[in-house]
Amino acid sequence: MTMGTSRAWFELKVFFREREQVVFTFALPILLLILFGTIFTGDVNGVAVSQLYTAGLVAAGVMSASFQNLGIAIAAEREAGGLKRLAGTPMPKHAYFTGKVLSVLVIAAVEAVLLLAAAVLLYGVKLPGEVGPWLTFCWVFALGLTATCLMGVAISGLPRSAKGASAVVTLPFLVLQFISGVYIVPYTQLPGWLIDFASIFPLRWMCQGFRSVFLGDAGAVLEPSGSYDLDRVALVLAAWVVGGLVLCLLTFRWKSRREG
Rank of each mutant, 00 (worst) to 15 (best):
T5N: 10
S6L: 15
A8I: 09
V14G: 02
F16C: 01
E18R: 13
R19E: 08
F24C: 00
L31E: 07
L32E: 01
L35F: 14
L35C: 11
F40V: 08
G42W: 13
V44G: 00
V47D: 11
S50G: 03
L52N: 01
V58W: 01
G61N: 04
G61S: 06
S64D: 14
A65I: 02
N69Y: 15
N69W: 14
N69G: 09
G71K: 02
A73R: 14
E77L: 14
G88M: 12
P92I: 04
K93M: 11
F97G: 01
T98D: 07
K100R: 13
L105I: 06
A112N: 00
L114K: 04
L116H: 03
A117P: 05
A118M: 09
G124I: 08
P133Q: 07
P133C: 05
T136Y: 02
W139I: 01
G144F: 09
T146I: 12
C149W: 09
G152V: 08
I155F: 13
S156P: 03
R160N: 13
R160S: 12
A165N: 01
S166Q: 14
V168F: 11
T170H: 11
P172C: 02
L174F: 15
L176G: 03
F178R: 06
I179T: 05
T188P: 06
T188M: 04
T188Y: 03
G192V: 08
G192N: 12
I195D: 03
F197V: 11
F197Y: 11
W205V: 00
W205Y: 02
F210K: 05
F210E: 02
R211I: 07
F214P: 04
L215Q: 06
D217T: 14
A220W: 07
E223L: 09
S225T: 15
S227Y: 10
S227F: 06
D229H: 05
D229W: 03
D229G: 06
L237P: 05
A239E: 04
G243E: 10
L245E: 08
V246L: 12
L247C: 07
L249C: 08
L250K: 14
